[in-house]
């Protein structure tokens, strides 16, 4: 069986290796391939990915719509598209599965969420993730492509919930890194993580997600893995920000963090526009944009009126 992978970053390569372990062949497209193709992994032109039934998108959210549109010219209703992004696009917080559905003729789409990181996925360390799709054949295809004895792939029908939970974890992991970086203790970190997740859950439910998804592997489970130190880039970026490194300098080091910053801005703007309560996410947006510094963060975190949880 052939599996397509769009992207050439660390996560795309990790997926390719996970696919190889199950014995399938990988067709990979990358704008600037940084590695050599190996046994069973061929680097191909974008249209050639249409030969695969299942295609993973492992690219940052800003470039996904255009790539999907271009690839979509060569696809039909028989293809399954699954993205691994932690981003959302547009003012209305559009998730990437919604983008995939609107720019390609494919309907059987899904999102891979949960505590999957590039290094562990590539090396085959035991772990787990969630494939969220309305279509059981997409669950089965992803399980067949990368699942196995060492990688437990749970299925969910709550696509928006899983995508939004994944986005929330991306930005909260940065916030946790920042809180750690400015020297605050575990209790503050827990307040940040759990109350931040509560805000994101509220908005996620408004968007059509289910509460349980945020409490599961795609939400709290994923955040737990990040805090426990699974080498998440978002955490490192948070710490760098706390140390005063400029965003432009961090940006030169890698791509994953961009999602968290943009997500915080978008969610904060959405909350303000719709009257949803999201003070911690708004604070994160201000911190990432350097509108406030560490002293104000402590003040803001601790001086907020305390109510029922």
């Amino acid at each position: 069986m052939k599996i397509g992978v769009v992207g050439g970053g660390a996560f795309a390569w990790a997926l390719a290796h996970a696919v190889r372990r199950t014995g399938s062949e990988v067709l990979m497209w990358s704008r600037r391939p940084q590695r050599e193709a190996g046994a069973g992994i061929s680097l191909v032109a974008l249209p050639a990915l249409a030969a695969a039934e299942l295609i993973f998108f492992a690219v940052p959210s800003p470039v996904l719509p255009e790539l999907a549109r271009e690839l979509g010219q060569h696809l039909d209703g028989g293809h399954y598209l699954v993205h691994v992004s932690r981003g959302i696009v547009g003012d209305g917080l559009m998730t990437l599965s919604q983008v995939l559905r609107s720019v390609t003729p494919c309907r059987r789409v899904g999102a891979l969420a949960g505590p999957l990181v590039a290094a562990a996925l590539e090396s085959g360390a035991p772990g787990g993730g969630v494939i969220a799709s309305r279509f059981p054949e997409v669950h089965a295809a992803v399980r067949e492509a990368i699942g196995g004895k060492r990688l437990r792939i749970y299925s969910s029908e709550d696509v928006i919930g899983a995508e939004f939970a994944s986005t929330a974890v991306g930005l909260l992991a940065m916030a946790v890194g920042y809180v750690q970086g400015i020297g605050l203790g575990p209790a503050t970190l827990a307040v940040m993580a759990s109350r931040g997740m509560a805000e994101c859950t509220r908005i996620g439910v408004q968007l059509g997600g289910r509460v349980e998804t945020f409490a599961g592997l795609a939400g709290h489970g994923d955040l737990l893995a990040a805090v426990a130190g699974d080498g998440r880039p978002e955490l490192a970026v948070g710490r760098e920000l706390a140390a005063g490194t400029l965003l432009a300098d961090i940006r030169r080091q890698g791509g994953a963090y961009v999602e968290g910053i943009e997500s915080a801005r978008r969610i904060a703007a959405y909350a303000q526009r719709t009257g949803a309560r999201a003070p911690l996410v708004s604070m994160c947006a201000d911190v990432f944009d350097r509108k406030i510094g560490s002293a104000e963060v402590v003040e803001l975190l601790m001086s907020r009126a305390v109510g029922g949880e």
Binding site: G72, Q73, S102, P105
Partner: peptide, 9 residues
């Protein structure tokens, strides 16, 4: 399809 191409249902 979204690009205006015909697609086989």
């Amino acid at each position: 399809s979204p690009s205006g191409r015909t697609v086989d249902p």
